[in-house]
Computed example of a mutant assay.
Amino acid sequence: MAAPRPMTLDALLSAFGGESMAHMRYLLFAEIAEKEGFGNVARLFRAVAFAEQVHARNHFEKLRGLDLDAKVVAGAPFGPGPTSKNLEMAIRGEEFEVEEMYPAYIAVAEQQGEKQAALSFRWALEAEKTHAQLFRRAKEAVDRGEDLAIDGNIWVCPVCGHTYVGPEPPDRCPICGAPRERYVKF
């Protein structure tokens, strides 16, 4: 596999680092939410952590086998606190990815003709929109002193990270088209 052009390579490395950190941050936030009595918020953090892992894996797959120099990838602020604060940080992180990071990465990949990287970024962008929305709902509930009301389960597409709340996952993933059988339940 030929190495992506430099700007796309930097975008893939940055996205991989960011998604990896979000994965771990959300797992830690889940532990805090659980301790604070917000079991459904904890489930949401775990489900979205899995989705972030999917994004990181997809970006990593585009980097596999390349001879890369060690790179330091800057990340978002980290500092677990109470669940409400953690949800605010999660919302800001997801909004940054939706509004700034992924649109820029998509533009770079498309400009450089890196179709697979652009697809990976697009899938993540669409999933992040749902994550931000779900975290907003969770924060509203927590700020009222309640747990997030979840009707059914939290489902995550292991191909693109699409996250869905309901009794059953959709028949096909609205982002990547994966069949419902592929979804992972949380």
Rank of each mutant, 00 (worst) to 15 (best):
M1W: 05
M1R: 12
M1S: 13
A2H: 12
A2P: 08
R5F: 11
P6K: 06
P6G: 11
M7R: 14
M7N: 12
T8C: 10
L9W: 04
A11S: 06
L12K: 06
L12W: 12
L12V: 03
L12N: 04
L13G: 00
S14I: 01
S14T: 08
A15M: 04
A15P: 01
G17I: 04
G18H: 03
A22F: 01
A22I: 00
A22S: 05
H23N: 07
H23A: 08
M24W: 10
R25L: 10
R25A: 09
R25Y: 08
Y26L: 06
Y26P: 04
A30C: 11
A33G: 02
A33S: 09
E34N: 12
K35N: 09
G37A: 11
G37V: 09
F38D: 03
F38R: 07
G39D: 10
G39R: 05
N40I: 06
N40G: 00
V41Y: 05
A42E: 00
R43V: 01
R43G: 02
L44C: 09
F45G: 05
R46C: 01
A47I: 09
A51L: 01
A51Q: 02
E52F: 02
E52Y: 01
Q53H: 10
Q53A: 11
V54D: 02
A56N: 04
F60E: 02
K62P: 00
L63K: 04
R64V: 11
R64K: 13
G65R: 07
L68P: 04
D69V: 08
A70Y: 13
K71F: 08
V73F: 02
A76M: 14
A76K: 02
G79C: 12
G79S: 08
N86G: 01
I91K: 00
I91V: 15
I91T: 04
R92F: 13
G93K: 03
E94T: 03
E95W: 07
E95G: 00
E97L: 14
E97T: 02
E97V: 08
P103M: 07
Y105H: 11
I106K: 01
A107E: 14
V108G: 06
A109L: 14
Q111V: 12
G113I: 13
G113E: 15
G113N: 11
E114P: 00
Q116S: 15
Q116K: 15
A117Y: 15
L119G: 05
F121R: 01
R122F: 01
R122C: 00
W123M: 12
E126M: 05
K129M: 13
Q133I: 09
L134Q: 14
F135P: 08
F135V: 15
R136F: 03
R137N: 03
R137E: 07
R137Q: 03
D143E: 15
D143N: 14
R144V: 02
G145C: 08
D147M: 04
L148P: 01
I150L: 08
G152M: 15
G152Y: 06
N153A: 06
C157A: 13
C157Q: 01
C157Y: 00
P158C: 05
V159D: 15
V159F: 02
C160A: 07
G166R: 14
P167W: 14
E168L: 13
P169G: 04
P170S: 12
R172T: 09
R172E: 12
C173V: 07
C173H: 09
I175P: 01
G177N: 09
G177A: 11
G177Q: 05
R180V: 10
R180G: 07
E181G: 14
R182Y: 06
V184F: 10
K185T: 05
F186M: 07
F186K: 11
